[in-house]
């Protein structure tokens, strides 16, 4: 079902549930992996993904279609992730690096990555980036999202996003080089 069709059906109370169910089925995987890349842990990603769609439900009626539906959903998901990580830091009084280290430890424990030393170092490097820079890195490197669309998701200018991504790549390359044996 196309986005405009979902939105039209959502406006009608009789078909609202059906339309929203279609919306969830269409975007759940993308939202989940977007969130999972940020919080690493599946249970956290599961909670946040559900929270994202509950928020989408609450605000979809007021969605003005100034941007694409998916970009709008991504923006909600991004804010949920950043709020989650920042509240985690506040709750446990953790400095920035400790949350990165905690996420890196979860990556190390993940059996999917076992045996791939370079990939492990790459993930550790990415998880040590500040949250917002990591978000920019993920959107550009993994999702290959155009900068203009990233600007809509993050509310940041294209120029600032390019600079942020450039710095993120440098940091990642330096970290992997430094921590990889000959």
């Amino acid at each position: 079902m196309e986005d405009h069709e979902i939105l039209t059906k959502f406006q009608d109370p009789a078909s609202r549930n059906l339309a929203f169910n279609q919306l969830v089925r269409k975007y759940q995987s993308k939202v989940y992996w977007h969130v999972r890349k940020m919080v690493v842990d599946h249970d956290d990603a599961d909670d946040l993904t559900q929270d994202v769609f509950v928020k989408v439900w609450k605000h979809l009626e007021n969605f003005r279609q100034d941007s694409q539906l998916f970009t709008w959903i991504y923006r909600i998901a991004t804010n949920e992730c950043l709020n989650f990580l920042s509240s985690k830091r506040r709750k446990f009084l953790l400095p920035l690096n400790d949350v990165g280290a905690e996420l890196a430890a979860k990556i190390e424990a993940d059996p999917a990555i076992a045996g791939d030393a370079i990939e492990l170092k790459l993930q550790q490097a990415i998880l040590r980036l500040p949250d917002k820079q990591r978000l920019v890195f993920n959107l550009r490197y993994y999702d290959e999202m155009p900068y203009e669309q990233m600007a809509e998701v993050t509310g940041t200018s294209v120029g600032a996003l390019k600079a942020s991504y450039h710095h993120a790549v440098k940091k990642v390359e330096e970290y992997v080089t430094r921590h990889t044996e000959e």
């Binding site: 759940q28 995987s29 999972r36 890349k37 690493v40 509950v54 609450k58 990939e119 993930q123």
Partner: peptide, 24 residues
């Protein structure tokens, strides 16, 4: 995407039902 373990089997089949149950 990064090399992370996949979500449990059937996760995306059940997720819409869980989300619909949480809607106000």
């Amino acid at each position: 995407r990064p090399l992370l373990s996949e979500p449990p089997a059937g996760y995306f089949d059940k997720l819409p039902t869980q989300i619909m149950a949480r809607l106000p």
